[in-house]
Every structure is written in C-alpha cells, then in structure tokens.
Amino acid sequence: MLGQAISVDGARWRRILSERDLIPVTGTMADSDRTTVTRQDVFNLGDQSISVDHAFQLLYYSLAWGLGLRASRLHQRLDNLAAHQDRAGELLVAAWESVRAGAPVKEAYSVLTTDRGAGQIPWLGPAFSTKFLYFAQGNVAQPRHLILDKVVATNLTEDVWPAAPINAWWPETYELYCGLLNRWAVEVSEDPKVNRTVRADEIEFAIFKRHLTAA
C-alpha cells in the first residue's frame, strides 16, 4: 500500500507556483515534468524537521498525491493559498507540531478546520486537511490520523454510519471516525487467520476501494 503511486504533472505544479510567487516545489516534482508520487514519498516528507518551507512541501505533495494528474481546480486552490500564504504557513506548522506532539486527533484537526468542519485555509477543506495530517505523521507504525474524504464517508454510510455527513466533518466526527478505524485495525490484527498487524490506513484504503470496485 505504501508504494501506491499517483501520476502527477510536475511541470504544471512548478509553473502555477511560480506564477503565484509561492514557495517553489522541491524533490521529484521539481526534477521531472511527469512523474509519480507514492504514499511512502509523502510520509518521508512528514519525517522532516518542522518549518514553514517543509510544511509547504508536505502540503504540495499531499495535494498532488490526492489530486493526481488532472489536479482539478489546482489554480483556484493555489490562488487562495497565495492570498493567505503567511496565515497558511502558521496553520500548517501548528497542525504538524500538534501531530508530532501526539495531540488528540480532534485537536490537530481543529487547527486546520472550524468547529463546523470548514477549512481554515480557503480551498483546503476538511478532506485535504485530513490528508495533510495523515502524512504529517511520517513513518509511524500505526497512524492515528486518517484520511477521510467523500468516497470513504459515502461508503461508510452504506453499512455502518448511515447518519454520517459526506462532505464536511466536525472535529468530534473526525475523532469518532479515526477511533472506529483504529479499533477495526486492532480487531483484524487479533484474528488468527490474519497473522500480522493491520494498520488503520489499510482499513481506510479498503473502504475507499469499495467505490472503485463497484464502479
């Protein structure tokens, strides 16, 4: 799963960032026009020392991995990031520090979202906030902060969480979601037939793939 590779357009990212005077991208997307980014690549960025520059790289790669080659509405996302660059840097660093300090899931999520689940940074909504928090954990054995997006939320409503919202999540809702998937990971790991430790993000990925399989 950590090798899951997403195609990205490095040349497009470099051009749009430059046009908006945003911090330039480094690494793979700086060196290649079309390349791939894996989960492992982004987790490695989460292991770096925390700084504004590193926080922007972590955000860029989290977004690139989540948006893929088409990168829909990338101009609008980066327009708003540029318009709130200083504030965004402060929030991203604070969220990353919260994750690294082992703060409760709800507390870290609340740095990037309002108490009603809207993004504190325009066009960085709750789904991409959870991606940033997920990768900010770096290479941990058992991630606590998990990705939650519309696909995962919709699939959960079908069987186990019928009343759950599918577009935005209050901090308390996100905390419940992460707790649920971490408990499921423990339960699966204790099954003698499995014979290994299952990560909570493996559960999330399996829920996400239900949509792809059904399609």
Rank of each mutant, 00 (worst) to 15 (best):
M1T: 14
A5K: 14
V8K: 03
G10T: 02
R14Y: 10
I16G: 10
L17A: 03
S18M: 09
L22D: 05
P24K: 13
T28E: 03
M29R: 07
M29T: 03
D33S: 06
D33R: 00
R34Y: 00
R34P: 00
T38V: 02
T38W: 03
R39V: 10
Q40G: 09
Q40M: 07
D41W: 07
V42L: 01
N44T: 12
G46W: 07
G46K: 00
G46L: 00
G46H: 05
D47M: 05
D47S: 12
I50G: 12
H54C: 01
A55F: 03
A55P: 15
Q57L: 02
L59A: 01
Y60R: 10
S62F: 09
L63M: 14
L63C: 08
L67R: 14
L69R: 12
A71W: 08
S72E: 10
R73N: 11
L74K: 07
L74H: 12
L74M: 14
H75G: 08
H75K: 12
L78K: 04
D79M: 09
D79L: 05
H84S: 05
H84D: 11
D86H: 08
G89D: 02
L91S: 00
L91F: 06
A94Q: 11
A94H: 02
A95V: 03
W96E: 04
S98C: 14
V99D: 08
P104F: 14
E107I: 09
A108T: 05
Y109Q: 05
Y109E: 03
S110C: 05
S110H: 04
S110V: 05
S110L: 08
S110F: 11
T114D: 09
T114K: 09
T114A: 08
R116S: 15
Q120A: 11
Q120K: 12
I121Q: 01
W123K: 10
L124W: 13
P126Y: 13
A127C: 10
A127E: 06
F128N: 13
L133S: 04
Y134H: 09
A136W: 08
N139H: 15
V140M: 06
V140C: 04
Q142E: 11
P143F: 06
L146G: 06
L148Y: 07
K150I: 13
K150R: 15
V151A: 07
V152G: 05
A153N: 09
A153S: 14
T154S: 15
T154W: 11
N155A: 04
D159P: 01
V160K: 12
P162F: 04
P162C: 02
A163I: 00
I166D: 13
N167G: 14
N167K: 15
W170M: 12
T173I: 06
T173A: 04
T173L: 08
T173R: 09
E175V: 01
L176A: 08
L176K: 10
N182Q: 15
A185K: 07
A185S: 12
V186A: 12
V188G: 04
S189Y: 12
E190H: 14
K193G: 10
N195D: 15
T197M: 06
V198C: 04
R199L: 01
D201P: 11
E202I: 08
I203S: 05
F205L: 13
F205D: 13
F208D: 07
F208C: 02
H211T: 12
A215L: 10
A215N: 11
A215C: 02
